[in-house]
Design a protein around this nucleic acid. Structure first.
Lengths: 155, 155
DNA sequence: TACGATATTGATATTTAAAATCAATAATAA
DNA sequence: TTATTATTGATTTTAAATATCAATATCGTA
């Protein structure tokens, strides 16, 4: 089994386990949203509105509130993360691996988002937390600036 | 002159220069808000609402919109920064020094905010940006977790 | 399989922070 | 002092997040 396929199964299991633990129910809608989100939005950062519009194409009867609530569920059980890049809209992103924590570099001109990971930053960060006796549950790093193509365009 | 007093003057100058450059006007209200914000909220993270309520005590005639707009002005001219810790409310914080970039560690239990600065993280970060040909204008790092006293309390 | 308890759904309403509007007023330059 | 232009404060508008609720779907159990 490829690592991607394995991860896919794990994600599904995490979700199913969470549903069982919290005594929730599995529904057609949750499956549809799960599949669309994790098949089409790997490595992307989608707003509730965008995902809703996308899903509506093939499933016109699905409501906005359901998409909204399901994305929150994904976040709660740890298979998606919520991001906020300062435009007032929450964005959701599938978590690809449990270990690799990545961050974002956002071009304030064109909105392009570049992801990056950096082991050194991660370890500095944990060290800082340890010093302050914090138990880290999450962290986010965002760099805002102008990308090279926007710099070109400005000239 | 103490470094703090010096910084105070610089901040005022930056603000005055910005007003001149943009052909804005200096007003009583802006002065009141400036003084309250930079005298009472050093090292803190205040919401518009909080600052408004505070200022109203001595200046009942000042409007919310003015406080809101003035904090945006401070941000625009680079003497304050806007933060968002995920509770849906923007917070403003006086910038203490132009060089020292600090970050935040937020306890998700009690809301306590610990500030920290780390040179190593800063330099890693610039390196990453350089690699991707990004011109950095700003960056933020937030660590979410549980502080030691909340951990104690849980037991 | 049918039943009953309980969670979910989708439409809609409510809440909230951010931003826009605008007439009255204040600041500035000539 | 006057004319011009920006600001103020009250209010409204916008838009995202969240809450509400009747109808419906899920699921364990008989």
């Amino acid at each position: 089994m490829t690592p991607v396929a394995k991860r896919k199964m794990e994600r599904r299991k995490t979700f199913n386990d969470y549903i069982a633990k919290k005594q929730l129910k599995s529904t057609k809608q949750r499956d549809i949203i799960f599949n669309e989100f994790f098949n089409s939005y790997m490595g992307r950062h989608v707003t509730v509105e965008e995902l809703y519009e996308d899903i509506k194409k093939n499933n016109p009867s699905i409501g906005f509130a359901t998409v909204y609530r399901t994305l929150k569920l994904f976040k709660e059980c740890g298979i998606a993360s919520e991001r906020n890049f300062g435009d007032g809209k929450a964005r959701y992103e599938p978590i690809r691996s449990e270990t690799e924590h990545h961050h974002h570099m956002i071009c304030t001109e064109c909105g392009q988002i570049v992801e990056f990971a950096n082991m050194q930053i991660e370890s500095c960060l944990l060290q800082v937390a340890k010093l302050n006796e914090f138990n880290v549950s999450n962290h986010k790093l965002e760099i805002y600036g102008i990308c090279s193509s926007c710099r070109e365009a400005q000239r």
